[in-house]
Amino acid sequence: MCLGVPGKVVSVDGFIAQVDFWGVTRQVRLELCDADVEVGDYVLNHVGYAIRRIPPEEVEETLALYDELLEAAAKGDGVDLLAADMRGELDATGGGGS
């Protein structure tokens, strides 16, 4: 229902920030953002407003959470839910929450 795209703040002037969306820079308004933002912060943009400052550590935590789901499954209910080679692939790509 609502396109939200994360981007990185490159400058802040009052309630107006310039945000880089990995390729294009666009003005984003900050008055609705849940926290004050600084240059280098990541924000979630919806229709030209930042609606969330995304703490980078939360990204790592989200990925770790997904891996936990898989690990719990692998140990869990007596079913081999993860093929061994898949597990290996995950480990090889540093999927354990680096």
Binding site: L3, V5, F21, W22, G23, V24, R26, N45
Partner: peptide, 13 residues
């Protein structure tokens, strides 16, 4: 797809 086109595509849906 260039970074700019990819980003614009994501922003504009």
């Amino acid at each position: 797809i260039s970074d700019a086109a990819r980003a614009a595509g994501e922003l504009l849906g």
